[in-house]
């Protein structure tokens, strides 16, 4: 197997009850890349992403089939522990959601703390480290004990990114992380994502084509649960192979 491949998805299908939402997706993800997923709304982008850290199965009646291999192990193997899977594949959600009644600091280290790490110096160091990676440190370093909810929307989303990074998952999933934010807050998150790929592999759903083109190395185009085209972003946005892709990125459909 190619050493560069960190996550290898094979024939992934997902259902809500009888509704087949994600259809036979196969795609491998290279280490230290940003991978965008685009497509019209309702085409299964979120569902696909949520399969990859086994959050999809939290929905009553939801089902998955196929494989996704990380560290030589299929995450859907009956013996695979979802808790372990999620430590390797973290997720940032569409709506910024700092945990309530927790300070900024507590929000960042909660994952580590609940894994049983108690050493204060390590937690502090890790909090600073992750807040820096999330480009939030300078804005919050003087108020780490303030409520996480007191931050602005963009800051809250960066806090959620720091929280995800704190447990150090090699793969980070992001589901439209900037769609609830204003352009300036979005730009900050785009910038930090480009930094993140030095250490992490990012798979990001976005409805914003310019964003996908700017920040991602690879792009997948989904329609109605199917992967229509995937390629280098530089290719897909300049020379799409499929008519549907072209129509979508030029705004004729979607």
């Amino acid at each position: 197997m190619n050493q560069d491949i960190i996550l290898d998805v094979k024939d992934l299908n997902a259902w809500f009850g009888n509704f087949h939402a994600v259809k036979s997706i196969s795609k491998s993800y290279k280490k230290n890349t940003i991978n965008a997923i685009i497509g019209p709304s309702g085409c299964g982008k979120s569902t696909y992403l949520r399969c990859l850290n086994r959050i999809h199965e939290e929905v009553p009646g939801a089902k998955v089939s196929g494989e996704a291999i990380i560290d030589g192990q299929n995450i859907f193997d009956p013996k695979a522990d979802p808790v372990e899977v999620r430590r390797k594949i973290g997720m940032v959600f569409q709506k910024p959601n700092p945990f309530p009644a927790m300070s900024i600091y507590e929000n960042v280290v909660i994952g580590l703390k609940l894994q049983g790490i108690k050493k204060k110096s390590f937690l502090l160091e890790q909090a600073e480290n992750c807040l820096r990676k999330a480009a939030l440190w300078d804005e919050v370093k003087d108020k780490l004990n303030k409520d996480g909810m007191s931050l602005s929307g963009g800051q809250q989303q960066r806090l959620c990114i720091a929280r995800t990074l704190a447990v150090n998952p090699p793969v980070v999933l992001m589901d439209e992380p900037t769609s609830a934010l204003d352009p300036i807050a979005s730009a900050k998150i785009e910038d930090l994502m480009s930094e993140l790929k030095k250490e992490y592999t990012v798979i990001v759903v976005t409805h914003n084509m310019q964003q996908a083109a700017r920040i991602s190395d690879y792009t997948s185009f989904f329609v109605l649960g199917e992967l229509i085209e995937h390629n280098l972003s530089s290719e897909i946005f300049t020379r799409p192979k499929m008519k549907q892709t072209e129509d979508y990125i030029t705004g004729r459909f979607g």
């Binding site: 939290e58 808790v83 372990e84 999620r86 973290g90 709506k95 959601n97």
Partner: peptide
């Protein structure tokens, strides 16, 4: 309490009871 808080907790790799 909206479900996305629960999902965010699980997504950190926490056991459900924690």
């Amino acid at each position: 309490i909206p479900n996305h808080y629960r999902e965010a907790g699980l997504a950190l790799g926490l056991p459900r009871w924690k």
